[in-house]
Design a protein around this nucleic acid. Structure first.
Ligand code: FES
Ligand code: FES
Lengths: 144, 144
DNA sequence: GTGTACTAGGACAAATTTGTCCGATTTATG
DNA sequence: CATAAATCGGACAAATTTGTCCTAGTACAC
């Protein structure tokens, strides 16, 4: 569905958001531990998210990653997916034709588009804030 | 969403089905041409489908691939996806945790499962016969 | 039987994705 | 200023997926 990079990205952003809500800036190392991801690979992904203004990074001692509180409400999953996987979730054809195209549709087009639109809506409706809710009370997890 | 192999597999099976309905057995070469896929790679995938009894192959001159008429009604997309991509569509977690698990869900679990179930239902409800319908009348395409 | 037109299958190659390593740079602190 | 703790970014390595090539075997036609 999503690339590994994207999965790590969402989990990382969610963890950062949960800590930022409590005023804590977190280090790469801590993030990787908390979401159970390879440290160096996670670093790359956080760079991407940083360039895309999804997370804020600060270098140097006591540096790390954080997300502005107002952005935690504002940032939607869709933005993270787009920053890492591009628009393939939105324009890709279910059967691998160059691009999904209603004018020359593949045999699953109608059925597929319905599902893809649901996914799209879900991604655009779900904020980082919502992602953190269950974490605080221990009903959802970022690793197992 | 699906692997390339799976996409080719669905397109190939759909094309074979459409031709089998007209009583024509088709060669690998023709299939690859009609679905615009790499010949040798398509051969591998057809071997898989053949081992899984989704298509029937016959060797030798005038050999090729076909699908029994009754099977065209019976075979669902889900079987093809399962034969090639396994069950990852069904058991995978949206955020990449080992397996989707309602007892220790990730933050997107509920939203994700809803969409995945729709996909699953679609795959299990769509027969090869339905896939071929638009092809005959030129409203759907297997290549562009 | 021989030639021809096919599929089967294994070994290999290329491309992409995932993941590692390390030096450079930045920043807080003493 | 020196040190330590952190991110940045480029080069590299490993793993997976995608794709190619070649040989063997099979069936039909003559
Ligand atoms: S054309 Fe294939 S999904 Fe739209
Ligand atoms: S646990 Fe992540 S989708 Fe179910």
């Amino acid at each position: 569905m999503f690339s590994k990079a994207c999965e790590y990205g969402i989990r990382a952003a969610t963890y950062i958001a949960s800590q930022s809500l409590e005023g804590r800036r977190v280090s790469l190392k801590e993030i990787a531990e908390e979401i159970d991801s390879p440290v160096a690979f996670t670093a790359k992904i956080l760079q991407q998210l940083s360039r895309n203004k999804i997370v804020a990074s600060s270098k140097g001692a006591y540096g790390g990653f954080e997300i502005e509180k107002s952005n935690i409400e504002r940032i939607k999953l869709g933005q993270i997916v787009h920053a890492i996987d591009g628009d393939k979730v939105y324009v890709g054809c279910g059967l691998g034709l160059k691009k999904c195209n209603a004018n020359k549709p593949c045999p699953v087009h109608d059925r597929f588009v319905a599902i893809r639109d649901d996914l799209k809506n879900m991604l655009e409706a779900t904020s980082l804030r919502e992602m953190t809710m269950g974490l605080e009370v221990g009903t959802t997890y970022l690793k197992r």
